[in-house]
Design a protein around this nucleic acid. Structure first.
Length: 472
RNA sequence: UCCCCGAUAGCUCAAUUGGUAGAGCGAGCGGCUGUUAACCGCUAGGUUGCUGGUUCGAGUCCAGCUCGGGGAGCCA
């Protein structure tokens, strides 16, 4: 008999013998027709389970079938038939049910068929994917990841595997995790008393990457359109619903391009991803719309159908100043936008995602290109940066046109108190055939949060890493 | 890291001014039913997060710690 996945069985015409393999979601018994049980089976291939009808005449009905509980693994041979009951169009009349794996103590099974809080399920990370919500998140996460690669492949971007371990210790994106093989209990010392990193694996201090950007820029300067999509690490002691110590980031980089090209790419990509998601995972998205975030499907459609709002930083400051709102942090040209300001712009003023561009240079990274808006067209005081802000989460994308002029780049590095020599290979890109180029970073987990309405970022990655959190 | 709130049955929560723990869900058993958020009855299940303190007596008050939630900073 042909083994069919639940998804295929639910979409098939009645008639014919099939085999199902999966896990029991629920079992309901009836004494009608000499006794029978309705068993919902799930195998992860779609949101809905399939109903198996087990007759009392089955040889192991009393001994096994009638004792099945949520979580048991079984195989079913039977006939796919039109359902006599309401709620499903097809079901499987079982001829044989084989129990593959029992649940040894149903009373303490951590994820029985009942409502659970997200906080509780987070403590059962190895079992939570068996629930409706986390199964749906897992499928959505996969679908979005696959769509990212397809989007870039269709546009002739090359996927570059940038390193996870880096020795650049000043990428300016927060605290880094140190990578070392030195014996912590017996550190080698230099004559001056410092730690002798010459004896470490890489003969210098090394860390987990906080961004693949600097590396991917090198490939951009030869392959024109590239991206990296991998894990990144921040050792910040931040405890919020939108930060992780280990998260995945999508970072495209395009040559012969300016900030407008960069913003256009970001908009095209987000629209592509949401459209693909609504098409391929309509079942899971219907669930999120019903149970997690009512209206999420319409909101995504609206984003797909309407042009993005682009807002220069200076205008954003104007809007915030004239809003009449009382701010905890005062709004002033030259300071970064705070959470309360971002929320106002996306949730109250525009009620949609907003891309803020042309930030003051003083609050942005050294590699961002100075705009020529200074006195007499001199570089400064703003940089060609952009942040895409979304309701409920805040920043989801951060990007910029990169500084391609070596002299300007050097002065920016020095102004930030950094050593140009440390960036020698990055500076070489500006010495050998430099071109205008731009790119951005999209936080993958925040994208999933936004697309599903899941409130906590720890619930959209299988095994979240956060301060004091690495159990699984 | 800072501010606020919380931790009691497998899960979600109750427990008057301090007086030795209850319900719903889940689970087990029985009843009813082509069932599907099923329904009805019975049963089991608790060193009240940890350590210490106040008190005749602490789930309840105090201190520290651990964990969780909301917000902030940092950022993606």
């Amino acid at each position: 008999m042909a083994w069919m996945k639940v998804r295929d069985a639910l979409g098939a015409q009645p008639g014919g013998a099939i085999t199902l393999k999966g896990w029991v979601r629920t079992r309901r018994d009836s004494k009608a027709d000499g006794g029978l049980s309705f068993i919902q089976i799930h195998d992860g291939t779609c949101f809905d389970p399939i109903q198996v009808v087990a007759r009392g005449a089955l040889s192991n009905y009393e001994s096994e079938v009638a004792r099945l509980t949520t979580g048991c693994a079984i195989e079913v041979d039977g006939e796919l038939v039109a359902s006599q009951g309401k709620g499903q169009s097809v079901e499987v009349q079982a001829n044989e049910i084989r129990v593959i794996g029992w649940v040894d103590d149903p009373d303490t099974y951590p994820v029985p068929q009942k409502r659970h809080t997200m906080e509780y399920l987070r403590e059962q990370a190895h079992l939570r994917v068996r629930t409706n919500t986390f199964g749906a998140v897992a499928r959505v996460r996969h679908t979005l990841a696959a769509a990212v690669h397809r989007f870039f492949d269709e546009r002739e971007f090359y996927y570059v595997h940038t390193p996870i371990i880096t020795a650049s210790d000043a990428e300016g994106a927060g605290q880094m995790f140190r990578v070392s093989t030195l014996d912590l209990a017996n550190l080698p010392r230099t004559p001056e008393g410092g730690i002798d990193f010459d004896q470490d694996f890489f003969a210098k201090p090394s860390y987990l990457t906080v961004s693949g950007q600097l590396n991917v820029e090198t490939y951009c300067q030869a392959l024109s359109r590239v991206y990296t999509f991998g894990p990144t690490f921040r050792a910040e002691n931040s405890n919020t619903s939108r930060h992780l110590a280990e998260f995945w980031m999508i970072e495209p980089e395009i040559a012969f391009a300016d900030l407008a090209d960069d913003a256009a790419l970001a908009e095209e990509m987000l629209k592509y991803l949401f459209d693909d998601l609504l098409t391929r995972r309509a079942d899971d998205m219907a669930f999120f719309d019903l149970r997690i975030e009512p209206g999420i499907v319409d909101r995504l459609r609206h984003i797909i159908d309407s042009p993005f709002r682009v807002l220069p930083y200076t205008e954003a400051v104007d809007i915030l100043t004239r809003s009449g709102k009382k701010w905890e942090f005062p709004v002033k040209w030259g300071t970064d936008l705070q959470s309360e300001h971002e929320r106002y712009l996306t949730e109250e003023h525009f009620k949609q995602p907003v891309t803020v561009i042309n930030y003051p240079a003083s609050i942005k990274a050294f590699y961002m290109r100075l705009n020529d808006d200074g006195t007499d067209g001199a570089p400064g005081p703003t940089v060609a940066a952009m942040d895409t802000l979304v309701p409920g989460i805040g920043e989801i994308i951060g990007g910029s046109q990169r500084e391609e002029r070596l002299d300007v780049l050097d002065s920016r590095i020095k102004a930030m108190g950094l050593e140009p020599e440390q960036y020698w290979w990055y500076r070489d890109l500006r010495r050998y055939g430099t071109v205008p180029h731009a790119g951005f970073g999209l936080g993958f987990e925040r994208l999933i949060q936004f697309a599903t309405g899941m409130k906590n970022i720890r619930d959209v990655i299988p095994f979240p890493r956060a301060p004091r959190q690495a159990e699984f």
